[in-house]
């Protein structure tokens, strides 16, 4: 099993006709993802390497039965693209795009919650989601992940996620699903959403969580783990030595007013019984120990 996406997920790519959309959309198809459609209002009726292009998500859903959308639209158009996807009838929206204004994110997050409660949003500014061997939506290199289980991964950082997948694969450990929730201030899907889904997924036996400075999502996740998780969790939090007030690459990675430090997050996670590594390698080794004891 996996969470959120599997071999039955049918994906429409908003922005499939652009260079990034085409590149990753076709890579995802090569991986085995059901890439059923693309959208572009000016290129409806054409195709991208055999993938039909429709004017909008609604048309694509009607014609192909798409259940998920992946957004490769430039930042200024992401707000409208998200609404179009929800109105078009998909139940899962993955926004890869970096650089979306925080006010847009806050608005479509709350709009989806109010008007489309059944729709799950992932991102923006995320690498996407991969259920190895079944479905890969986004920019993760599929071959660095070993299919199967027993580990589920959730992460705010792209490269550190790849690192985690790769290190687990090197040790012969597979992954049920790896979710990149992204580095922005208002992520559509949170650590808690993923932890809850992993807890409910019978094939996931342990969870690896990769956080970073800024906000309080890791602290909230720690409280959830303490109160609701029976499965073991290992974690790493990046940015222990980040200076206050500076955005460390990601829009959401900032220590402000003494809040959002890595130390406070690691402490909260430790108190919740999570095995916390001081660097990505150590977190990987902790997961190897956890898996050996399962």
């Amino acid at each position: 099993m996996s969470i959120f996406v599997d071999e039955t997920t049918r994906v429409v790519y908003q922005g499939l006709t652009g260079s990034q959309g085409r590149y990753y959309g076709l890579l995802n198809r090569d991986y085995g993802t059901q890439v059923v459609a693309g959208t572009n209002p000016r290129k409806a009726g054409t195709d991208v390497d055999g993938v039909p292009v429709f004017a909008n998500v609604g048309d694509a859903v009607e014609a192909t039965g798409a259940t998920a959308s992946c957004i490769f639209i430039p930042a200024p158009g992401v707000h409208d693209a998200v609404i179009e996807a929800a109105e078009g009838g998909v139940e899962f929206i993955v926004a890869i795009t970096e650089g979306v204004p925080a006010h847009d994110e806050a608005r479509f997050y709350n709009l989806l919650k109010r008007d489309f409660p059944g729709v799950r949003m992932l991102g923006p500014n995320c690498p996407g989601i991969i259920s190895p061997g079944r479905c890969n939506i986004g920019i993760t290199a599929g071959h660095i992940a070993l299919a199967g289980g027993p580990v589920g991964i959730v992460s705010r950082s792209g490269t550190l996620t790849y690192q985690a997948l790769y290190e687990l694969k090197e040790k012969g450990i597979g992954c049920t699903t790896c979710v990149g929730i992204g580095g922005d201030p208002v992520p559509g899907t949170t650590f808690i959403d993923c932890l809850e889904a992993f807890e409910a997924d019978p094939d996931t036996k342990a969870v690896m969580m990769i956080g970073e400075i800024g906000g309080s999502a890791e602290e909230a996740a720690a409280a959830f783990i303490r109160d609701h998780m029976t499965k073991p969790v290992s974690a790493y939090v990046a940015g222990v030595t980040a200076p206050p007030g500076k955005k460390m690459g990601h829009a959401g990675a900032i220590v402000s007013g003494g809040k959002g430090t890595a130390d406070a997050k690691m402490e909260a996670l430790r108190e919740a019984g999570v095995k916390v590594g001081l660097n990505p390698t150590e977190a990987g080794e902790l997961m190897v120990e956890i898996v050996a004891e399962l």
Binding site: T159, L160, E212
Partner: peptide, 8 residues
Amino acid sequence: NGAGLAMS
């Protein structure tokens, strides 16, 4: 390469 890896 990558904000998370750079922080790390």
